[in-house]
């Protein structure tokens, strides 16, 4: 697919829930499925689920989202969170990145509780991709910055 073929898409972030599937079906829009590093939830879970449910989607890497926003290809963001807290919501690694980009491009964000992820993560941080390491030495592995869940304050979501 080419960028020009994408229009008024719905971005999904985090593990899609049944509620999310229903909303995507109602909307009948093209969904954008980023890969969700490091765990690859987008590729290993969301893409499979959407395929099974016959929902049209296009896959991309997380760093392509900014350009898709810039090109006005996204009209809504569905954010699947892990937990609600007093200060905000907790989402997977990269949630702040994606939500701030949505906010900075004035894209409405819908907050939905995440689905139950049913696959074993091969990657727990940036040191590997699909289980394969691209880091050579053990000392280099100590330079990895942990990919933790992120608390996103309510202000970002307003």
């Amino acid at each position: 697919m080419k960028i020009k073929d994408i229009a008024k898409a719905i971005l999904i972030w985090g593990a899609v829930s049944e509620d999310g599937i229903n909303r995507l079906k109602e909307d009948k829009a093209l969904a954008i499925v980023p890969e969700n590093r490091p765990y690859l939830i987008g590729l290993k879970y969301n893409a499979c689920l959407l395929k099974r449910e016959n929902i049209n989607f296009v896959y991309c890497t997380d760093n392509m989202l900014g350009f898709l926003f810039y090109k006005a290809k996204i009209r809504k963001t569905l954010f699947f969170y892990k937990e609600r807290k007093e200060k905000g919501v907790v989402g997977i690694c990269g949630s702040l990145y994606m939500l701030l980009l949505s906010k900075l491009h004035n894209i409405p964000i819908e907050v939905i509780s995440q689905g139950e992820v049913n696959f074993r993560f091969l990657d727990k941080d940036v040191s590997s991709l699909g289980g394969k390491s691209f880091i050579l030495g053990e000392t280099d592995k100590s330079c990895i910055i942990g990919a933790d869940d992120e608390l996103v304050n309510w202000e970002v979501l307003q």
């Binding site: 997380d62 990269g94 880091i135």
Partner: peptide, 14 residues
């Protein structure tokens, strides 16, 4: 140096 997933940038800035 340290290495991050592309999507960790905002978190580190914050």
């Amino acid at each position: 140096c340290g290495l991050i997933c592309d999507n960790q940038a905002a978190s580190l800035m914050k």
